[in-house]
Design a protein around this nucleic acid. Structure first.
Lengths: 254, 254
DNA sequence: TTCAAGTTTCAAAAACTTTCATTTTCAAAA
DNA sequence: TTTTGAAAATGAAAGTTTTTGAAACTTGAA
């Protein structure tokens, strides 16, 4: 017999490979009722991991013409999407949150579908533009020097805004996580801004795929002990997981 | 057997490749009745993914030849492009300029191709993203509450940034220009931000098509006498031109 | 006018949802 | 370690919605 998590993994694998799947086949393959499969698909759809259709599900929105993307990029972005989706579940109604910049937190932004009101402060222009069309979300764009590589701002321009707010959660994407050196990013002024964001937030949630562990970028943001929660993928070593848990950091693995 | 979503994807793919398709072929290829295909096409047409024709469907609107509304819109945007292009000629190397928000100044941003360095401060996310890829341009994005309708920020969040800079030129797009009431925009907090921009700039250059003259929007930015230069199209009346020139305002007509 | 194309109506089948009772899981208490 | 209880998971059953195409009827292009 196979448990629910394994079933979900099976479904996600199959849809990654085939692009689509149908309820009846899954019933037979997994030896469960169609009701259960539909509940699975509904749950995975809520996490934005697939799109349900009448009779099954597809990986991509069936009503958009898909641009050809390179296979590796595609898989990688699927992983980021799942990290982002898990992060998005932490967002609650009437929250005020900060979203930093990076592709992983952009994936998170795409998964946020609040039922109630939500205030989002962000340094990333693409995050802001992603969220602005949702009428339940009030978006505050931080100002600053726009970086060529990341379409997000950095520098000291937003100090006074961040000094005058306090948010319940910060979602941070980083370039390096090192147990001794802490969190890092490639750019010093981005690190400075991230530091300010940390000071304005109650909970620090870091989104990073497992390749980021053990790496050190140029700009140091903060020590590892300031982090409350890390969301990553299964590539992370047990040793690292234990070390983080010993520090009182919650670790979620997709 | 193939389900409805997969059938729709098949249709979308085929029309993307061929540009058009016919009902009978689809019936055979997908092994369903013509009624079903027509229902599919109707549904996809409702989603604006294709245009139905007698006997099939096309990707592009088959009746685009005589559409007075589109034509007018097109001319209008061509006009904005020309206004923007004329404005862009005023930008000099090593300038520091402010670009406000709106479709006309976005057109201007698209025409800026500096040989030397240029610093641009802007409240509009789309202007910032338009310019950031040019290696000669340093873009400073102003922060603030992101407006749903214009993808630009507003509010008092950028006061301290604007108080600490002085730019040689401000390019302003407005919703109304009235000789007595001055410049106006539809939104009060945008007007406030524009006012701050004016205080931080040496020359105020207003880009507005001729339909804006005589109009008054909700939020007053400033009196007409603060303007240095107006770029507009030939729809403006001679009377207005003379009145502006009497006030010492330069008027450029495309 | 002629005839293929399109629409509407209707009924059957498949897919889906909801409800609810049963089973399983898991963690705390004994 | 075993017991216990609450929460989560499961699926049968009943009811609802969607999909589909045959048939009858209408429309539109040559």
């Amino acid at each position: 017999m196979i448990n629910i998590a394994e079933r979900h993994q099976y479904i996600l694998n199959k849809i990654q490979i085939n692009g689509s799947l149908d309820v009846q086949s899954l019933c037979k393959e997994l030896n469960v009722s169609s009701v259960t499969i539909r509940k699975d698909l509904k749950l995975l759809e809520d996490k934005n991991l697939l799109f349900r259709t009448h009779g099954g599900a597809t990986l991509n929105n069936p009503y958009t013409v898909d641009k050809p993307v390179n296979e590796k990029e595609h898989l990688q972005s699927a992983e980021k999407m799942r990290i982002g989706a898990l992060g998005a579940e932490l967002v609650e109604d009437n929250d005020s949150i900060i979203i930093a910049s990076g592709t992983t937190v952009l994936a998170l932004a795409r998964c946020i579908k609040p039922k109630g009101m939500l205030t989002v402060i962000t340094s990333a222009l693409n995050v802001a533009l992603e969220l602005v069309h949702n009428s339940n979300i009030e978006v505050i764009q931080l100002g600053g020097l726009l970086r060529k590589t990341s379409s997000s701002v950095a520098g000291p321009y937003s100090d006074n805004v961040l000094k005058n707010v306090f948010c319940s959660k910060l979602f941070l994407g980083v370039d390096g996580i090192d147990l001794e050196f802490g969190l890092t990013t490639t750019n010093a002024s981005e690190a400075y801004l991230n530091r300010q964001m940390i000071d304005s937030s109650q909970k620090i949630i870091v989104l990073a795929d497992s390749t980021k562990f053990g790496k050190r970028g140029f700009g140091r943001i903060c020590g590892i002990e300031e982090v409350d929660h890390i969301i990553t993928d299964s590539g992370i070593s047990n040793h690292t997981i234990n070390a983080l848990k010993d520090l009182g950091i919650k670790v979620s693995i997709i």
